[in-house]
Design a protein around this nucleic acid. Sequence first.
DNA 1: GCTTGCCTTCGAGTGCGCTCGACGTCCTAC
DNA 2: GTAGGACGTCGAGCGCACTCGAAGGCAAGC
Lengths: 150, 150
Amino acid sequence: MTTDRLRDLLETTQGDLPPLTTELIRDLDLPELLPIADVAALTGVTAHTLRYYERIGLVDVARDASGRRAYDRDAVGRVVFITRLRDSDMPIAAIGRYMEMVRQGPETEPERLALLEAHRADIVHRLRALETALAVVDYKITTYGGACGS
Amino acid sequence: MTTDRLRDLLETTQGDLPPLTTELIRDLDLPELLPIADVAALTGVTAHTLRYYERIGLVDVARDASGRRAYDRDAVGRVVFITRLRDSDMPIAAIGRYMEMVRQGPETEPERLALLEAHRADIVHRLRALETALAVVDYKITTYGGACGS
DNA sequence: GCTTGCCTTCGAGTGCGCTCGACGTCCTAC
DNA sequence: GTAGGACGTCGAGCGCACTCGAAGGCAAGC
């Protein structure tokens, strides 16, 4: 599958990609293995960044016979998951720790859960901050030309 | 007013500072002019960062007789506004442009408004991304021990 | 009058998350 | 067989937003 065909598929499927969950990816009938350019097109993460994520241990990616990256569904799902975590400003280091625990096996599950719960609290906190900011900006917008110069 | 007294005041007033709007600041009966440490305590922005904000032109701050910063209500309000914009990840450069326009006077108001509206759209976009991320994290949390290893 | 401590300026340093470039390889198409 | 293009590795560079440290000033309290 070329990047072009993939992009077509994406366009006819959802228009405006963003939400793109792991589930959604399962539903697209993609080949088993994708080259890096397709993963980039699919996820919106540049190939450079995908290599970087692999380099620092966030995703393991298999190679084909000629040494090129071949992303299977799991790997793509992981990339999507990582982008969700990054969207919510989880630091790379925390994601790294999480993925390391995943690699260590099921006995790290309680710890992983704790990490996610901490991050969840963080997200809720940021949501509130964003809502406050939105209110402030809306106030400024609606009262524009009004009193305060700031 | 010492930083300590200010902190006491803050504690008895709202417990948990965050929202802290310009209006709220007007309601606290503070002295006309505050030294940098008090502004830091009030806003949660470090003195170092306050100086940095001034250096790069985000706020103008007057000096007292001995050359020390003396923040008036307007300046404090501006700092609070800036922190709201920063909380919503408005880049420093954009805030700088905005503040520059404020300095240039009322004829820049349409442009300022446009800047705020663009930023508003950005905030809404981030809110959606955060909500998506929250849903994903919640899904992972509730299904923990579940199927997918990612 | 001396210490203490908050303040000043200035410039350099830090941490994060990419982002890029160089250079080489391999596959495909013509 | 050769040209083009996507891919590989490696290491360096960048932009952003602080963050820190050095060196000195000034005012209040002991």
